[in-house]
Design a protein around this nucleic acid. Structure first.
Lengths: 235, 235
DNA sequence: GTAGCATTTAACCTTACATTAACAAAATGC
DNA sequence: GCATTTTGTTAATGTAAGGTTAAATGCTAC
């Protein structure tokens, strides 16, 4: 889990206002996806996970409330903020009914919006304890704790692993005794496959080999032109 | 949780308005305690646990913000809604900084307030750890009393902790031996995540490390780019 | 007011991490 | 064998994160 930007889905049909708002949010380190109408908004929502949705209420074809309802059916938790030109009481009530987290009347102050977003995100910051992805591995005499990024030898010595070391070893462990294609690591961990990332990966393979050296049952073999293989030999 | 009435602390100095609002909320099945000024509000807050605080901003002697800050020192989680006559941008920002959950301008529609309250309560309900009301921890040879904010070493030496020290150590203890994400502390305790709050947090980590130093089984480890880990080693 | 705290800000330092570069050594294919 | 590609190794460099310290600020209480 690295320093990820928070992802915001912004659904706003006014192209000028939408673009300005998007830029402003991006300047404040949010990753923003801008949909130009309700339909598009729902498509984009289904395709990805968002930390927050900002919906304009007044939109052609599919208004913000309808969209909010659809979003709620898919995901009961994602915070929703409505933008609205008029401050009609009925609208506000309707908004809270579909589970709005907040409400903003246009024109609104951008700093206020920012604070609201921060407040909502902070609320959300639950201690989501580790999704049950696999984070612990036994590798010969080693135990790899991939969440806390350390490698224990025979229950004793702990080696801290850097994020890349950790990811790489985890990927190898997931393919224990089997081929872990070079390309897999490069695309999954380095997100790019070129001469330099490849060289970088080799550097990390070397580091891992150094850590694993203390147990002579464990080794990382190269399969020329294919990838690597984490082998655990019997005693 | 059982079918308990939710308890609301209402702090409002205008006796007429306060009484009307209190009655209205009670009619809607909330248990309401009405304090007539900031001082009284804080006294009442300390005496009981509330699910929500509604604070008037403009009050003699102790305004709503000051009160909110005091409340926050005691309890970082309780939702706070401000009532204010004027909609000054600075005020709104100030409100969110002290951790407001919402903001209402007087005169406001009572139904809107009700919806907001419902929305906030619903949010709280889904907040998984909101109920982790644990205030006493054993950390190696230390005992942390997080309510009274002190740290005892081997039943003897007591160190008083400042509010921030206390919250931070508590958060670490809640995740003992596990990762306590940096971001979690920053959003929960500092309510903001930027370069300076991050540096501030480091200062507090240093303070805690100094306190904990006397017990060499206990340490706070950093996990680069992720957060911290309070480790208690076996003897 | 000012004394005494808690907290933030600021500057600065250290460490951790990832990449790059240059080169050596294997492996492969002809 | 020798040319080419792939892998291995080491060191340097750059940057980001974390750590430390002291001063500045803000608050409360006297």
């Amino acid at each position: 889990m690295d320093e990820q930007e928070k992802k915001i889905l912004l659904v706003e049909d006014d192209p000028n206002f939408g673009t300005v708002l998007k830029d402003y949010l991006m300047m404040n380190d949010y990753a923003v996806v801008h949909a130009k109408n309700g339909m598009e908004g729902f498509e984009k929502f289904k395709k990805d996970d968002y930390d927050l949705c900002i919906l304009d209420v007044m939109m052609p074809y599919k208004d913000g409330f309808t969209l909010a309802k659809e979003i709620r059916e898919k995901n009961a938790d994602v915070p929703i903020v409505f933008l609205t030109a008029k401050a009609m009481k009925e609208d506000v009530l309707k908004g809270y009914k579909v589970g709005a987290d907040d409400y903003l009347n246009k024109p609104f102050d951008s700093e206020v919006l920012l604070m609201k977003i921060k407040a909502i995100m902070a609320r959300k910051a639950t201690d989501t304890v580790a999704d049950s992805k696999q984070f612990e591995f036994k590798i010969g005499n080693f135990d790899l704790n991939s969440k806390l990024r350390f490698l224990t030898y025979k229950g004793g010595d702990q080696t801290k692993l850097s994020p890349k070391e950790n990811e790489l070893l985890r990927l190898l462990a997931l393919h224990e005794n089997d081929l872990m294609p070079r390309e897999l690591a490069l695309t999954k961990i380095w997100r790019d496959d070129n001469y330099f990332t490849s060289r970088s990966m080799d550097v990390y393979i070397a580091k891992l080999r150094k850590y694993l050296k203390v147990d002579d049952k464990v080794e990382i073999l190269n399969i020329h032109g294919e990838g690597f293989r984490l082998v655990v030999n019997a005693d």
